[in-house]
Nucleic acid binder design. Structure first.
Length: 159
DNA sequence: GCCAACGTTGGC
DNA sequence: GCCAACGTTGGC
């Protein structure tokens, strides 16, 4: 299994929204690098740090789990959607999405504190100019962020 | 609101 | 294939 970090703007879709929905598709990824990782590497059971961006309290706010692997993002074919892509061919969809399930909230781990941690200096999140909306997280980084939130390491939510 | 950094587009 | 112009991201 693998660990990930996924960014979302809480004004549009927050960890609270995900909790209410329990399971949600993760639509609107329109970056090839992020898409390729999601398509080729993201598997059911992978755990995800949910990160709030472009808001007052930027940082990691909770955990989700991948529960449905890559499938076409139908919003690319909806002219009414913000994520509409007129160049995408319905017979060969350009963009995909996964489904994620809410697992838990964490106390905010602010970006500023993540940046201050030497163990986390290699995260794409804190690399200058990196705007990836989905990025891999190593097990050590995962454990470090959880520890910063006061959370014991978690490897899975299976009973 | 500012602006740096990056990705995408399109003319040539 | 180059590269300037433009749009977007996202912290501050």
């Amino acid at each position: 299994m693998a660990y990930w970090l996924m960014k979302t703007e809480p004004d549009t879709f927050s960890i609270d929204t995900l909790k209410e929905m329990d399971v949600s598709c993760w639509e609107g990824v329109r970056n090839y690098q992020a898409r390729n990782m999601m398509r080729d590497q993201m598997k059911n059971g992978d755990l995800v740090l949910i990160y709030h961006s472009s808001c007052k309290k930027v940082g990691v706010v909770g955990i989700a789990e991948v529960v449905n692997e890559a499938y076409p993002d139908h919003f690319q074919f909806d002219p009414e959607s913000h994520y509409f892509d007129p160049k995408s061919d319905p017979d060969n969809p350009r963009w995909i999405m996964v489904d994620v399930a809410y697992r838990e909230h964490l106390p905010l781990v602010p970006l500023a504190k993540i940046k201050a941690r030497p163990e986390l200096e290699n995260m794409p999140l804190v690399k200058k100019g990196n705007r990836l909306s989905i990025m891999p997280v190593t097990e050590h980084e995962w454990d470090t962020v959880l520890a910063m939130a006061g959370r014991e390491p978690v490897r899975s939510y299976e009973s």
